[in-house]
Design a protein around this nucleic acid. Structure first.
Lengths: 136, 136
DNA sequence: ACAAGTATGCACCTTTTGGTAAGTACCTGA
DNA sequence: TCAGGTACTTACCAAAAGGTGCATACTTGT
């Protein structure tokens, strides 16, 4: 038994899977880890191809460096396609690959969950911050 | 327009939501960010209440410090319930709250996605590591 | 008596991640 | 001519996240 999530169950949602990955979820997490990646995927999934600048403005608070970096990683992971129109001034846009599109779909339930439970989430976060202020 | 993910769409999967959160996905991400949290939630969702030690062995490669820490955060966020039987030697177990259970359900598509696409994920990761060795 | 297991806590350190601020090369509009 | 927009890149730095190893207090098995 060398699986991280021990495999004693028979359903196919969390099976042994491939070498190096403990289960499907593990594989997915490796690909979407990065502060803004799920948001990028989801956003591209909702609104189709976007120019760099649009993404930048849409995903508020992200810095150029990190946005570019995460876009590059997503591109390397074949989730996002970069199209450079080789114009001057530069024009580039980003869209989802088929693989990326399917991932974006899988993200929908998380978004829904968040929407349905913002009240709870907000409440616990308020408490966190109150505690942080007391402690420092 | 002050939303990170600009809200020009009418569906309810990614709506304006609450102050401080850009969209439902954003809210969810705040709660599950932590290297092992999705795995913990998913694992508890699959196999019901688990003793600390079982989790520890199931989620291979996690250290005590971090596992305890993430369990505490999940507990503070009302996703996980800790039950201390006050026995000696210590016996404690962890289970999902109703909120946690609903989140675990929302994680299922990600797991499925990972399972269905391990081949692709494995391939890109192999490439990454090859490149990292060349660069270092 | 001693190792091992139980569920943690703590100090310390490294790695990873993300952010800031500057620069590039070119264009457009005032 | 000068600010501002395009899509980045780079060097440097701070914070966050995670890992290591030791300690606790008590029990069970050898």
């Amino acid at each position: 038994m060398s699986d991280p999530v021990s495999a004693s169950q028979a359903d196919d949602t969390c099976t042994p899977v491939a070498p190096g990955f403990t289960c499907g979820l593990d594989a997915t997490l490796r690909v979407i880890s990065g502060k803004w990646k799920p948001l990028i995927l989801y956003f591209l999934g909702q609104d189709g191809p976007r120019r760099y600048g649009e993404l930048r403005r849409a995903i508020r608070d992200v810095s150029d460096k990190v946005l570019i970096q995460q876009l590059k990683e997503l591109e390397a992971d074949d989730l996002v396609k970069r199209t450079d129109y080789r114009e001057v001034p530069p024009r580039v846009d980003y869209s989802l690959t088929p693989l990326g599109r399917s991932l974006a779909v899988a993200l929908v339930p998380l978004c829904t969950w968040g929407t349905e439970n913002v009240a709870d989430v907000t409440r616990v976060f308020a408490r966190h911050e109150a505690l942080n202020r007391k402690a420092g």
